[in-house]
Design a protein around this nucleic acid. Sequence first.
RNA 1: GAGCCGUUAGCUCAGUCGGUAGAGCACCUGACUUUUAAUCAGGGGGUCCAGGGUUCGAAUCCCUGACGGCUCACCA
Length: 508
Amino acid sequence: MVHVREKHWADEIAGAILQVPGPHEISTGISPSGEIHIGNLREVITADVVHRALRERGAQAVLGYVADSFDPLRKVYPFLDAAVYREQIGRPLSEIPCPCGGHASYADHFLEPFLRSLERMRIQVKVYRADRMYKSGLLVPQIIQALKARDLIARILLECTGRQVEGDWSPFNPICQACGRMTETSVTGFSESAETVDYSCPCGGRGIASMRGGGKLTWRVDWPARWARIPVTVEPFGKDHATRGGSYDTGARICREVFNAPPPFPVTYEWISFKGMGDMSKSKGNVLSVHRMLEVLPPEVLRYLVVKTRPMRSIGFDPGLPLLSLVDEFDDAAAAGRDARALQLAGADQFTPVGVPFKHLVNVVQMADFDLDQAVVILRRNGYAVDDPAALKERAGYAIRWLREFAPPEVKFSVQRSLPPEARGLQPGQRRFLALLAAALRPEMTGEEIHELIYAVANEAGLEKGTAAFEAIYRAFLGRTKGPRAGWFLAFLERGFVTARLKEAAAS
RNA sequence: GAGCCGUUAGCUCAGUCGGUAGAGCACCUGACUUUUAAUCAGGGGGUCCAGGGUUCGAAUCCCUGACGGCUCACCA
């Protein structure tokens, strides 16, 4: 049964957005305070998919990505050198040193690999760097409006969140010129015409900060200021912002009442949780970076993971064995024409099918001892056409990296170069079986034929069950008792080597 | 305390405008003495969380409740 009119969530959202005339700007924003991870990716993919759906309907729409590079460093994260970064707390990410020394700033260190990942995922974004937005003076009008409306903003925060801000609170946080921090300063006055803010700092510093890069709006005001300035009409955000009294709630009121602009259409999404490790969190350090994920998963499959699930449902992600199923599910769905819209939005048309199940490829690369040319030879010898060797090698690369990074031990094996110790001391029946098998093997036999041969020979050797025969084979080649399907496994290996090893094990 | 999401086959989830309930995986059977997550064909499997309401008719709309997950300090 084929659903002719499949209604994907992206189309529903696009339909709702188009109630308001365009042009539209979909905005996403992530703070580059740490490794940008697969959870953050949900935001960008969600935005991208909505963007595509809007464009398909002929709407004028832009996809923007705001890197919050002007955010202050909140604390010394577990992955940072405390000696270096303790004194950087409170300073903007764009102004503090790169952890590896190879980038222009701390912010760039985390931003650059992420932007490269976006390219690989074919997500094209207009990048805004918050520090440049401020330094260029883009937000000066909003800063002035916010400073003037200080009391109104305080009342909105009180009404929405029940929290009374302190007496010296200001929506603008100037950077102290003496210590470089923006987290401790107090605003003592401002000049609209000079576009400056007067401040004092507990470090003893006092001075005048420019509204062009001399400080930043506090988060709850910064966000709506961007909405009004850019202007933003659609914004996806995590569920933490979606609670009543959360930053979307207050932001929407501030946007309307202070900046006189309509707030964007909200798209809330749930977390991606990392199976067995709980939620990913930058500050806890248990993250799976997008970059690392793209080493073990083709970009389309990563997109598919997000696209097939409605935004407000949580995604449990397991990079172990279930990852293989995810890849093959994607393949299957593509082959069977299932889930057509999700596949399309995932970019399946760009995906080169290789005709070999990923689970199987994981075995093949191990049989080939990680030699990709050999893997192609093996596959061809066993009835796989491999029309596109380059695509196959690329896919095999994912399998190899997955084996290295995430594979559970039971799926790993390696063909031993010399007779493993585990192959000694086999029962007489097993040795007889191996010898008979060596004699009966013919070069032209296929995996299936060898498989059947194993049963026939096991019988002949007096082994009652197949298990003992299989065990003998695995001990002789892998040094363990289990392994990939034996007939096909032996067929994959070089035939002369197989018979030699069988004889050797039979004789020992 | 406030709010959000969920509850449909063993598991993960679809289910359009309200019209007798679907897919994938798993399971069972066979092809075939078929280990190991092989392939193909076929098959079984449901109190749609509960109660009430609207309706000729409810998984679907409305109300109440239960259970589970989560969020509410600038963490997506």
